[in-house]
Design a protein around this nucleic acid. Structure first.
Lengths: 224, 224
DNA sequence: ATAATAGTGTCTCTTAGACAATATTTC
DNA sequence: GAAATATTGTCTAAGAGACACTATTAT
């Protein structure tokens, strides 16, 4: 069986936590199909480009964020024959997570890019099969928080344990016991390390500041 | 940026446990490039085919296994620009697991297909980037055994707890305490259900037979 | 002082894991 | 009976989660 030609794209689920709520980056499409609809940012892979490289490039174009500053991994590939009405497009979706980013810069194809709270996207219409991709990305992020130290990617550079906890609460949509959470994070080798002084961003007693530690896995895992 | 055309393939990591050892299906390539090398089974996606459908079709062609009888999930997508010397090929790898299957049927492109013990593949040369794909597939399988009931897919229809344990031991490459394993499997809701009588395939006291239960997750997870 | 949040202590219950004990076969 | 494996029991240590308590700031 001979191969047939298809276009290869990367799409991005870019998650951040703003004001204690999970947000995803969406762009409003300026061209058909789905003109005027929201969609995930993305674009076509170039002939000489690796998939992850293409995802990093699109990420930089859409968010203005420098390379290497945020977490990026392959999420999954979506290739239903009719997912794009123009031609067969295979989309390799990627998942990115970052601390509260500046307002995004619209890319070439996008009329506007903005952070949208997940709550507005649950039943909001997204172009193509992007609602499926977004749901898969959020579920992946939720699962990864359990057994990896990824949540630190959502935090500002020095952060407090309470800020880290609010990331978990935003992504999981649950409330966590402050005391138990505090102890478990400090007990997990390499999750965080002290970053000097303390601050009082909240109302009460000043909290110590931490940085992301070298550990990648949380032992034992945090329960959702 | 306009898209450029690429070929889309599915490759398969098909794992099984034979004689207490993890095996993967490999085919010997009958055509260049990499003629005479071992490779993962796979082929090009057809114009009207979903990715998972293509993987199922290839799986049936290579193993002669009927649809629906085994576990299949998307593993990841490999698209380095030079991974295939002929042209740009994006390969969507899939992971399949099944009970001890019959000797495979060679597909059209394959001179020969056979089960190869993982031990022989660790440093064995595989065509393209298939060694990476295989390694990723095995790692995914190892991780999934911890928190899913997937191991039952490797077992014959009615199976004993010891047979299930030997799957874990083969995939993880560790020894597990028979007593503790027994208790944890039975404690996990919906993991297995009794299937009537007992058998004595081993030497000692006959073991009860079980079937895969309706549960998909193992609570609490089994430690590696 | 009061409110608010940070961080620590304590208690109970569950689970993991090591390992012993018992059960039921074959040789 | 001896050997082998299945299944159950017991004990200890560690972790989860609920919740009380102390610490440190602002108002």
């Amino acid at each position: 069986m001979d191969p047939f030609p298809a276009a290869v794209a990367v799409d991005l689920v870019i998650l951040t936590v703003r004001r204690s709520a999970l947000h995803a980056l969406v762009v409003e499409r300026g061209v058909p199909p789905f003109r005027g609809w929201d969609a995930l940012p993305g674009g076509f892979v170039r002939p000489d480009e690796d998939l992850l490289t293409a995802a990093r490039r699109e990420l930089a174009e859409e968010t203005g964020v420098g390379e290497g500053d945020l977490y990026l991994e392959q999420l999954g590939t979506y290739g239903a024959p009719d997912r794009d009405p123009r031609q067969r497009v295979i989309s390799v979706a990627h998942l990115a997570m970052a601390a509260d980013l500046p307002e995004p810069v619209a890319g070439s194809d996008a009329a506007a890019a903005r952070w949208s709270p997940m709550a507005e996207l649950v039943d909001g219409r997204l172009a193509f099969d992007h609602a499926d991709i977004l749901a898969d990305g959020v579920e992946r992020a939720r699962a990864k928080l359990e057994y990896t130290t990824l949540a630190t990617e959502f935090c500002p550079d020095p952060f407090t344990i309470a800020e880290l906890r609010s990331v978990y609460e935003a992504v999981w949509g649950t409330e966590l016991d402050p005391g138990n959470f505090h102890r478990k994070v400090l007990a997990s080798e390499g999750f965080v390390e002290e970053a000097g002084e303390s601050t009082t961003r909240g109302g009460g007693r000043p909290a110590r500041l931490y940085r992301a530690g070298p550990g990648r896995a949380v032992h034992p895992p945090l329960a959702r």
